[in-house]
Design a protein around this nucleic acid. Structure first.
Lengths: 352, 352
DNA sequence: TTCAGCTATGAAATCGATTCCATGGAATCG
DNA sequence: CGATTCCATGGAATCGATTTCATAGCTGAA
């Protein structure tokens, strides 16, 4: 039951609450004496200002919120860490919310933030439905509220919010070129959910990269996952059972890759010799894998910093340009020469 | 610039703000007509109650905060996910804060929470200094404030806060027994920072387990890390360069294990045959490693649920018992027969 | 000496909801 | 039928800070 209010401090210091407030908020219109008295009283009583009352009157909270789409995805926890450290350096407190790749949970968090009036929001947005980018009603309301916000990693269509994203087209083209050079011509793609713009971008980049390398994109080699490990595992089983079994697989994020690799390990599929794997997101687990997995990734701390900088610009009333980084392709030994499969599951036409 | 307040809603519905408030907060003392009118007006105007104002008056926020010690540690992100889902099921919003294994950042977060009056707190506490459990001044103030709180994973000495922890003594004894059975007698320990109670508990359990298996604990085989990857890497180099090179290593958390495994891979140390590795925390990366790493772990979703349940009890005014789970040892192929090292670094007495 | 200008200050309004209190009217009871 | 309870309601106080606004006390210029 704590009750130390600014009035208690004021009384203890023998001044009015107005003066106490001025001292505590650094207003220069205060005498050295009252300053000393109030500060002494405040520390002595252990005064903690009530943030509710303060921001109710002054509309400033000195906090931003970061909404990521999956805490357990190391990609996003790296991002969270980067954002948080950068904000901290600027004297801003960060709350992290988890949308769990779910539009409903995203909306709940947005509603909480809207009623709680944070100073700014950094969001990894989820779209609605199949068109991969329609903002939810709650999101529209959030935007309409005028709360400074910035999108990071993903975007939504038809919405004017500055964003910090990454383009993977070039890296993917390099990766596919490498695979093509190794003789692969049936390359499967385990993709992400329609509600994520990155999922769409990666799939399109994949198709474009195939064409650029003289390979025909085939719909039957696309598997639609949801960016989580379980769907990666499912994708792995789908690949293994595929009638025209692919010799290489590109996976659109790390959790799915991890799920898939677990299945292949169980099934005794040798990564590299039997199946080349290229995954998005350069995370520890993929590098730790044996053989290490080739990745398409980028610097998340850079991206986190850029997001905070952009948000600060928006909070200052400016309109920062959207920024786009470029991811890089790192070949590793999970990419190997295409060979006819000789496992028990072999079927269809074997390339001699 | 949003301005839809409860007064606007009341006016639109032709009632007073008191009635509007009653309707919106589900007070039964309202007529069907005003209920209908207010609800219609609220949705039509897109009314979002101001949480600041609400909780200023009613001291309830329907939010809890979870303070974890490292977002990037998969162990804690699993915990965060579990807590969040459980709280969500109970209609409670969760904010996540990151202490980054740093007492100062922990205190900043606590200060923000104290002034923001969350309904409850679930904390992975950091102690101060070498005695691994002294609460910081801010933490003491937090406790004194009477805010319902629960410790999870770690505890602080001399503080009466219900906690949900895990005991690893038995699992560690089993693990050491297995190592001893494989002929290991120089087992190193890469431990955690003094500010974490788990670090201390694990080191003590390690020493006890050695004794229980007839091995003498030697201080020179203890390496003090900080639960982060970089210190694990350092520990790995320390092991490799150790004058009396150990044949097995126990590592106190996953990030350090990952850091260490990276170094050993670089150095060409073969895990299993050359060096047996047993790590705490059963996370993907360790299972994905080749060979898979033996672990001591436990069910985090169970622990997260227990923490939320305990917190709800505290919030309801009860005093729940502290709960302690037991972790389990899972042997994997990273544990193998002790053999004399024949690598380039070999030195000291070789066992024939 | 007097008046404008400045500074430090306190009283009071304010932010937006909740909640206490009083009240008028309907329903119930003796 | 008169008295009592009950119910929905509006007015006003309240939460704890910030922020006007007015003022008293000083300083410095004319």
């Amino acid at each position: 039951m704590r009750a130390v209010t600014i009035k208690d401090v004021a009384k203890a210091a023998g001044v009015s609450s107005a003066t106490a407030s001025r001292v505590l908020s650094g207003n220069p219109a205060t005498s050295p004496e009252s300053r000393a008295g109030v500060e002494a009283a405040a520390t002595r009583l252990g005064f903690v200002p009530n943030a509710q009352a303060r921001s109710l009157r002054s509309t400033r909270t000195d906090t931003i919120a970061l909404l990521i789409s999956d805490v357990r995805n190391p990609y996003f926890s790296d991002l969270a860490h980067a954002v948080e450290q950068q904000a901290r350096a600027a004297g801003i407190m960060t709350f992290i919310g988890n949308a769990n790749e779910d539009s409903g949970q995203q909306d709940d968090f947005l509603a909480a933030m809207l009623s709680r009036r944070v100073d700014g929001l950094i969001i990894v947005p989820q779209g609605l439905g199949e068109d991969a980018g329609r903002p939810s009603e709650m999101m529209q309301r959030m935007i309409a509220s005028g709360t400074p916000m910035v999108f990071v990693d993903r975007t939504l269509a038809g919405v004017e919010v500055p964003s910090v994203t990454v383009s993977s087209a070039r890296a993917l083209e390099q990766g596919i070129a490498r695979l093509a050079g190794l003789g692969h011509c049936r390359i499967a793609f385990i993709g992400g959910p329609a509600h994520a713009s990155t999922a769409r971008e990666r799939r399109e980049a994949f198709d474009a990269a195939l064409e650029a390398n003289g390979l025909a994109p085939e719909a039957c080699l696309h598997f639609a996952g949801d960016f989580k490990a379980a769907s990666g595992a499912e994708g792995a089983r789908w690949v293994a059972a595929h009638p025209a079994r692919p010799t290489a697989v590109v996976i659109a994020d790390a959790p799915m890759a991890i799920g898939a690799l677990g299945v292949w390990r169980e099934a005794g599929v040798r990564i590299g010799p039997e199946l080349s794997v290229l995954s998005f997101d350069e995370v520890d687990t993929l590098l730790m894998h044996d053989p290490p997995i080739a990745t398409i990734g980028h610097d998340l701390s850079q991206m986190g910093r850029a997001a905070v900088t952009a948000l600060q610009a928006v909070m200052a009333g400016r309109q920062p340009e959207s920024e786009q980084f470029t991811s890089h392709f790192t070949p590793r030994s999970s990419l190997a020469t295409a060979r006819p499969i000789t496992s028990t599951m072999t079927q269809g036409s074997a390339t001699p």
